[in-house]
Design a protein around this nucleic acid. Structure first.
Length: 114
DNA sequence: AAGGTGACCGGCC
DNA sequence: TGGCCGGCCACCT
């Protein structure tokens, strides 16, 4: 009954599966949705994720590990502190050793049937 | 219905 | 890594 017909929901589903202390990139999410070229749409979906406590948008960063979306959070450093709270080091709004915390979502665009 | 927008990505220098 | 340019695609007005 999930509104998976919406691209946004698809993004939320993936983001919600991001484990604690891990982060992922827009490209990875987009790829998991089968639309690696729609990475921008992923960001769009995140923008709509405001108010959705089920969507840890703070665990989503751009390709370089930059907290691109921190600017949209309630607090300026809210996103950073959230990540640091999970054991992720952040310097200059950028994740340190991104690959160490990088988590690539599996193709769950049909995993929801579980 | 059409145009503009955007929390991006990849390629090139 | 960093800066610039084009492409991409769904959402909003």
């Amino acid at each position: 009954m999930a509104d998976e017909h919406n691209f946004f929901e698809r993004v939320y589903i993936v983001v919600r599966q991001i484990p604690y202390g891990s982060v992922t990139t827009y490209g990875a999410i987009a790829k998991a949705l089968g639309a690696a070229r729609s990475a921008r749409m992923v960001g769009w979906a995140m923008n709509a994720s405001h108010g959705l406590d089920d969507v840890p948008a703070h665990r989503v960063v751009n390709r370089k590990g930059l907290l691109s979306g921190k600017h949209h959070f309630d607090g300026t450093h809210l996103m950073q502190q959230l990540l640091e709270s999970e054991g992720i080091e952040i310097v200059d709004n950028q994740i340190v050793n991104l690959e160490a915390h990088l988590w690539i979502p599996k193709l769950d665009f049909e995993e929801e049937g579980e």
